[in-house]
């Protein structure tokens, strides 16, 4: 069962995000109001330690568990899609109070109305796929 390890990672991810309250609409609102350090502490410490971790992974040349070289794909060098897409995402993130990870997690906490958000997020992704060639990137 090669999938078991991913299931366990997902379970940990869900537990961490609930216990950190990062899945809470209120915490996102508070963050965008700059009224608490909590979310900035979470993201800041995750990124700070993440920079160190990826630096060490690259420097030591550690292999993946399948024995392959670790490749972290770099993103395309463009500008407009990141900014415009980011802004639209930000609107949705602040209104729903949930980004894609928390959407799944909140469903698990028993908020079944989240299925509406997940369905419309899937629709949004689909519409992006249809319009992709017409949008500035």
């Amino acid at each position: 069962m090669k999938f078991i390890k991913f299931l366990i990672v997902g379970i940990f991810f869900g537990i961490i995000l609930v216990k950190s309250e990062a899945v809470s609409w209120y915490r996102i609102f508070e963050m965008f109001k700059f009224q608490s350090f909590h979310m900035y502490g979470i993201i800041g410490s995750a990124v700070g330690l993440g920079i160190l971790s990826i630096y060490l992974i690259k420097k030591t040349g550690v292999k993946s568990i399948e024995g392959k070289d670790i490749k972290i794909p770099s993103k395309n060098k463009s500008f407009k899609n990141y900014l415009f897409g980011g802004i639209l995402f930000g609107f949705g993130w602040a209104l729903a109070g949930a980004c894609p990870g928390p959407m799944y997690i909140l469903l698990g906490t028993g908020v079944f109305s989240m299925l509406i958000v997940i369905a419309s997020a899937t629709l949004g992704t689909f519409v992006y796929g249809l319009l992709r060639d017409k949008l500035p990137h």
Binding site: G85, G90, F91, G92, S120, A121, L135
Partner: peptide
């Protein structure tokens, strides 16, 4: 809920990632 979800899904793909893919990774 529909508009918020749509913006999250559309925006994340347009931007090539969301909070986990961009802000963390």
């Amino acid at each position: 809920l529909i508009i918020a979800g749509f913006l999250v899904g559309f925006g994340a793909r347009y931007a090539g990632g969301c909070t986990s893919g961009h802000a963390i990774s």
